[in-house]
């Protein structure tokens, strides 16, 4: 194997270059189903991030112990355990949020993004890199989930971070943005087709930014991938 990837490379890959939601298009079921508001997207993203960090770390720790023939069942066991943990913890500390996201928390188990990172990265790299990769990939997905949620919410009902207090406690109310009281939105945004359209637009935007960056300076294209990533969420 070649030299292990640098930290910067891992972060840039997870957040932008190889964003699992926009480039690999993994984990689309929760992405499309739960992003009816920015709060839901953020909650789902953070839950996924917690699972992926824990599973990456564990898989990396035991990578020399686990024989190739049984690695997939081991990954599944590890992921399922952590998902159950996250579910229990959410029920205990974010009960209202749990009621909203409900079944989709359990369904993190079958999110291909997580087993994908376990197989493609964590099982071949040191623990520190695996943890960082989990964090970067998780936050990359969270960014997309939250942005798509905010977008759909804004177009459909003219709010951003409506009911953020369910997830963040009382100070979450500060985040809520409301465009007038009689906002007449486009209902389609919050229905399933709106999720597909929104995701399509976001992928197009990412490709557009990538092409711009590439044209401006091919050498620097990979050096500063984080800047456009945060810019796109604004």
């Amino acid at each position: 194997m070649s030299a292990p990837p640098s930290y910067g490379h891992i972060i840039g890959g997870g957040l932008w270059r190889n964003n699992q939601s926009l480039v690999a298009l993994l984990g689309l079921c929760p992405l499309l189903a739960t992003t009816t508001s920015a709060t839901n997207g953020l909650g789902m993203g953070l839950a996924t991030t917690a699972v992926i960090v824990c599973s990456n770390g564990t898989v990396s720790l035991v990578r020399h112990l686990v024989r190739p023939e049984i690695r997939i069942p081991v990954f599944v066991l590890v992921i399922a355990s952590f998902v159950t943990l996250v579910e229990l913890i959410m029920q205990a500390f974010f009960y209202e949020m749990y009621l909203v996201l409900g079944l989709f928390i359990s369904l993190i188990v079958v999110n291909c993004m997580i087993i994908g990172r376990a197989e493609a990265f964590a099982s071949k790299n040191r623990v520190d890199r695996a943890l960082l990769d989990g964090l970067a990939v998780g936050l990359g997905a969270t960014l997309v989930l939250t942005t798509l949620g905010a977008l759909r919410e804004l177009v459909a009902q003219g709010t951003i971070f409506y009911q953020a207090d369910l997830l963040l406690g009382d100070w979450g109310r500060v985040l809520t943005v409301r465009l007038g009281d009689d906002f007449q939105g486009a209902l389609v945004a919050i229905l399933p087709p709106g999720a597909f359209i929104g995701l399509g637009l976001m992928i197009a935007l990412k490709n557009l930014i990538d092409r711009r960056v590439e044209r401006r300076g091919p050498a620097k294209a990979t050096a500063r991938p984080i800047v456009p990533a945060t810019a796109s969420s604004a």
């Binding site: 035991v62 112990l65 069942p73 081991v74």
Partner: peptide, 9 residues
């Protein structure tokens, strides 16, 4: 190994 993982999980 598999059993160990199941039990610890």
């Amino acid at each position: 190994v598999l059993g160990t993982f199941a039990i610890s999980g």
